[in-house]
Amino acid sequence: MPQDPATVKAALGELEKTGKAGLQIHFPDIVITKPGTQTIKAATQPAPFISISSRIAKSKPTKYFSMCLDLDAPLPSFNFMSPILHEMQANLTGQGEPDAEGWIKLASDDEKPIAHWAPPGPPPFSSPHRYIFMIWEQSEDLASVEIRKRLGFGETVGLRPRPRWDQDACEKKLGLGKSLGSNYFTV
């Protein structure tokens, strides 16, 4: 079985240790605030947006880069296809002031994500899959065009490059460094 990438291991370890997520994941019918929240496929079909905790947000004007990975495909006990890239988005910026709980909604000025949202779809006989969102501060030289170029992506990221995603290589190619925060849910 593949090992979780180093950044993912660190993020999961931090979430387990503190119980505090740096991100909220917003779907129309559910907001994931607590790490490991279990939900159903139907609730996670529309593309989510994320909010960043004001305790980890950088001062304005900061751009952020986010990714979502499925860590358990096709089965948690036999995850040879993992991780699978489920979404990649650049140029995220804070939208206004923090809400009452200290969350700042993020949105992108790009017309589309680097890799569009691929909704969770674990097989019916599978135990729950973990879907982790991670966020990094985006350097000024990392515009969407440059990200696509460094990763060898065209305008659209189809299914072929998503399974067995090499997260460590991706982070190295993009010069990402340590992630600022994360959160995950299970389906």
Rank of each mutant, 00 (worst) to 15 (best):
N79D: 15
L75H: 09
F133H: 13
P122E: 00
P76D: 11
M88D: 09
T62K: 02
I30P: 02
E146V: 08
F80V: 15
P76M: 13
A118G: 10
I56N: 12
P120Y: 04
R130K: 10
D141Y: 06
D70L: 09
D141P: 05
Y64P: 00
A100S: 15
A100K: 15
E140L: 06
D110A: 07
G19P: 00
K63E: 00
Q45A: 07
K112P: 03
K149C: 01
L151R: 03
P120K: 02
G22P: 01
S59L: 04
K60L: 12
Y64G: 03
I25C: 07
V145D: 11
E146C: 07
T39P: 05
L142N: 02
A118D: 12
I40V: 15
A42C: 12
G102N: 10
A43G: 09
Q138T: 14
L142K: 02
K41A: 14
Q45M: 12
L85F: 08
Q138F: 11
E101Y: 04
A47E: 13
I32C: 00
G36D: 00
E137R: 12
N79H: 15
S51T: 12
A118F: 14
E140I: 06
E140V: 08
I40Q: 14
L92P: 07
D99P: 13
P124D: 04
S51G: 14
I114N: 01
D70Y: 06
G152Q: 02
L69M: 05
Q38V: 14
L69R: 03
N91W: 11
L69K: 03
L85Y: 09
S53R: 04
Q89Y: 10
P113S: 09
Q95R: 13
A90I: 11
S139R: 08
F80W: 15
G19M: 01
A90G: 14
G36Y: 00
G121D: 11
R150I: 03
G22T: 02
I84K: 06
K60P: 14
K58G: 13
S144W: 05
T33C: 00
S127L: 12
P74M: 10
A57V: 01
R55L: 15
